[in-house]
C-alpha cells in the first residue's frame, strides 16, 4: 500500500521546500506567560499580548493552513484574518472548555476547511508530487515541546492502530475528505470511514480516562 506514505509538505513553486522553523518551546512550565493568560490579556485590550501570542503560535497555525490549503497567499490571508478575529473574540475564550492552542487552531483550521470544501483547493492534491512526509510530532524533541493536553492527545493517538491513525492525520493535517483519503491510499471508502469513526470514539474514550 504505497499510500501509507502521506502527502508531502507544501512546496512553494519558486524556491523549493518551505523553510522549517523550530517550534517555539511550548512546554507548559517553560513559557513565561501561558497562551491562556495571553488570550485573557487580549480580551482586556492588551495589544502586546496579541503580538506575543502571535509570535508563539502563528508559525504552527501558518504551517497547518499551508498544509491544508497548499496556497501561500490564502494561508497568509487566513492566518491574518484569524488573528484579527482572535483579537475581537478573545473574551469568548473559555479555558474550562479547551486549551488556548486548540481554540486558536479551531479558528484557523475551520476557515481553511470551509474554504476548500466550498470552492475546492486551488492546488489539487497531486499524488505525483507526493514527497516523503514527515509525520508531525514524531521526534522526541517535538514531543517534548507539546503542552500537556497535546501530549495526552498524542499518547491517545499512539494507542490507535497504524492505518486508522494515519488516516486521521491525513484528514486533520491535509484536510482530506474521506474520498480523497480512499483514492490516495487505494482503500475502499467504507473502510476509511469506519477507521475514522472508530478512531474518533476511541480517542475520546482515551482522553476521558
Amino acid at each position: 500500500m504505497r499510500g501509507m506514505k502521506a502527502v508531502g509538505l507544501w512546496q512553494s513553486s519558486g524556491d523549493g521546500v518551505v523553510s522549517r522553523v523550530r517550534r517555539p518551546a511550548a512546554s507548559d512550565a517553560g513559557r513565561t506567560q501561558s497562551r491562556e493568560a495571553l488570550l485573557h490579556a487580549c480580551a482586556r485590550g492588551d495589544r502586546t499580548a496579541l503580538h506575543s501570542l502571535y509570535k508563539e503560535t502563528a508559525p504552527q497555525l501558518f504551517g497547518l493552513a499551508l498544509r491544508i490549503l497548499r496556497n501561500r497567499e490564502l494561508a497568509e490571508e487566513i492566518v491574518q484574518d484569524s488573528f484579527v478575529l482572535v483579537w475581537g473574540n478573545a473574551h469568548t475564550f473559555d479555558p474550562g472548555r479547551g486549551a488556548a492552542m486548540a481554540w486558536l487552531a479551531r479558528i484557523v483550521r475551520n476557515r481553511c476547511i470551509d474554504l476548500i470544501r466550498r470552492r475546492g483547493r486551488e492546488t489539487p492534491l497531486d499524488h505525483g508530487t507526493i514527497e516523503s512526509w514527515e509525520d508531525p510530532a514524531s521526534s522526541p524533541a517535538d514531543l517534548a515541546a507539546l503542552s500537556s493536553d497535546a501530549r495526552r492527545l498524542h499518547d491517545c493517538l499512539d494507542e490507535l492502530e497504524e492505518c486508522p491513525r494515519k488516516v486521521l492525520k491525513l484528514v486533520y493535517y491535509e484536510g482530506m475528505t474521506y474520498q480523497e483519503v480512499a483514492v490516495h491510499l487505494g482503500v475502499p471508502l467504507g473502510t476509511v470511514k469506519s477507521w475514522v469513526r472508530r478512531s474518533l470514539i476511541r480517542l475520546r474514550g482515551c482522553l476521558e480516562r
Binding site: R97, M101, E134
Partner: peptide
C-alpha cells in the same frame, strides 16, 4: 465545538512555518 477543541490540539504538532 467540544470535538473541535479536542482535535485541534493536533495543531501543536503541525510543522511550523514562519509567516
Amino acid at each position: 465545538e467540544d470535538w473541535e477543541l479536542r482535535l485541534n490540539l493536533l495543531a501543536e504538532s503541525a510543522p511550523a512555518v514562519e509567516p
